[in-house]
Amino acid sequence: MKKAIVVFWFFLMLLYGLSSAESFNVLFVTDVGGLGDGNLNDGCWLGVQRAAKEFNIKAKVIQSFRQEDYLANISDGAKQGDIVMVAGLLMSDVVAKAALMYPKSQFVLIDALIDAPNVKCVLFKEEEGGFWAGLVAAAVTGSGKVGYVVGMKTSQAMRFVFGYEAGVRGYSILKGKDVKVLGAYVGTLNDAGKGKEVSLSLFNQGVDVVFQIAGRSGSGVIEAAKERGGRSFVIGVDLDPELMGSGNVLASISRKVDVAAYLSLKDIFNGGFKGGVSRLGLREGGFDLVETKILRGFLSQEDLDLIERLKGLVIDGVLVVPSSEEELAKFVPPKSL
């Protein structure tokens, strides 16, 4: 009888081993936002599920209900899963700790950066998202002045800005249009009052499109545009649908977290796990332009074609979007296509 159990057990293990030999399993640990946040967690889970279907990966989600649970949940993930997937800056400290505690486990961290050999970080080429926004802004402006409002001067936000300026320059040189860029910094991510004040002064100087990378201070930018009415428009980054619909918003550049999650798993499936950093840009489909109805009225088919062709240059690697002030100073867009 005992023998039978051992044999049966052995068999079971063998079966299990065979079935999982083809692929691996992934555990996705959410932050307190949890599934249904309509944001980072949902996006990431979407990408994981897509990869799971395509590559025959087993995927499971562990939801964190309190911040204190982060480390415990990620540790659980490290014990149970081959790959632990985590998203967001808020989780990065915990992932760094877990990566040290479980040096043999493998982690994927989306949209945050830590330096550990067993962590694969997936970031975005913000400059390319900003570039897209700049193309749109330059196409829409009637006054020849566009602006940007930054909440906190982080390197991420600044890459958006450098790309934006490059986009404006690229489009306007092709069109022979003269477009100036003015910008300002709020200094915090939650002061809508200041965000509004600074945008009003931009609009007062004739700026008619403002690109805002200002977190919740950005709500003030949108309110300023709404209050001024007429040709005062806003382009945002990762805007909530509610803000999108609140009037005078042209579009939002959204970072495709689902694509990031999907591609990272695809890489692992094809070539095994490798730690390090990868950054997604236009070529990888790392960004999307979510439009409102207002934008359509301002772009002719010719404008749209031009935007697509300039984006195409970036995708083909012909045009490199600047990600620093020095690169921006040296950036020379094509004079004709």
């Binding site: 915090t188 939650n190 002061d191 809508a192 009052g193 200041k194 509004k196 709500s219 003030g220 309110e223």
Partner: peptide
């Protein structure tokens, strides 16, 4: 009055 919205820590 200054804005018409609620944002966490909006007093800054």
């Amino acid at each position: 009055a200054y804005t018409s919205m609620w944002i966490e820590n909006m007093t800054a």
